[in-house]
């Protein structure tokens, strides 16, 4: 599964709304190839082609600037510009088409020295570990593995984290960078967001079958909004992705 994966990361930027990618995140993603997705969301009164006629040059220029910043730190950066009525559909589609392993929810960020990695029972630990290992590369970035659970699950949670830590070490994350912590809480999401705020960036797995529901559903939004930091969502394996897509075929996403 992992050896031939290049861990391409999708960086969606609402390019004409003045969004940009903070330098520290460019730095963080340095070891991985990125696809910078510039997109512009239009109300239904406006044909996407109409906006393209007026804004394409400006959007391409901004997108090129962002891509150059990535290339300056040695990353391979591709760009894609999309005019759309539906941002979720666009991000989902481009993520599928470019086989991205993770999607960045950009937020203002300082230098990233500590990653927060919440793991649940259903997390694909192998995949998240491999992604984090590729991301950390040979830099000294601390990786805090955390399991949030109710009172009863604390022991099982610690056992799960011990296994996970072994997986992360095997994937190439230095042993001294890894810490584990079981947090007891009845409100896992809020706790994840609160703990995430104490770290520089969050890396979490995609739990739901559809990236769309995860990215923009309540959970990730709350984590990203409450932690005020960037969140990297590691996507499920491509095979599982295909199922989600078929189910969405006639989805009225307008």
């Amino acid at each position: 599964m992992t050896d031939d994966t290049d861990w391409t990361t999708l960086v969606p930027v609402e390019v004409l709304e003045g969004e940009t990618v903070p330098d520290s995140l460019v730095e963080l993603l340095g070891p991985l190839p990125v696809v910078v997705l510039g997109y512009h969301v239009l109300p239904e009164q406006t044909a996407p082609g109409q906006a393209r006629m007026q804004f394409e040059d400006r959007a391409q220029a901004k997108l090129a600037e962002i891509a150059d910043a990535f290339r300056a730190v040695g990353t391979t950066a591709e760009t894609q510009l999309v005019f759309t009525h539906d941002e979720d559909q666009t991000i989902d589609r481009v993520a599928d088409e470019t086989d991205t392993a993770a999607v960045l929810l950009p937020n203002p960020a300082g230098d990233v020295e500590r990653l927060f990695v919440p793991l649940g029972g259903s997390s694909d630990v192998d995949r998240i570990a491999a992604y984090v290992a590729a991301l950390v590369d040979d830099r000294s970035i601390a990786v805090a593995l955390t399991h949030v659970t109710g009172e009863a699950g604390a022991d099982a949670g610690q056992a799960m984290l011990d296994d996970a830590a072994a997986t992360f070490r095997a994937a190439g994350v230095p042993a001294d960078a890894i810490s584990t912590d079981v947090a007891v809480s009845d409100e896992p999401l809020r706790t994840i967001a609160t703990l995430g705020a104490d770290h520089d960036a969050v890396v979490m797995g995609e739990n739901q079958p559809s990236l769309r529901s995860f990215l923009f559903g309540d959970s990730a939004e709350r984590v990203a909004a409450a932690s005020l930091g960037p969140v990297l969502v590691v996507r499920n394996e491509p095979e599982e992705q295909a199922d989600g897509e078929a189910a969405d075929e006639d989805d009225e996403a307008t």
């Binding site: 394409e56 391409q60 005019f83 759309t84 559909q89 009225e252």
Partner: peptide, 29 residues
């Protein structure tokens, strides 16, 4: 005239410059 030598996929129109125009209206819509 602004002529797009565009290619049509199921979910987008791709213009010559590679800019994509997302298709968002399904059958029900």
């Amino acid at each position: 005239p602004v002529v797009d030598s565009a290619e049509t996929t199921d979910e987008t129109t791709v213009t010559e410059e590679g800019t994509e125009l997302e298709r968002t209206i399904g059958l029900t819509g």
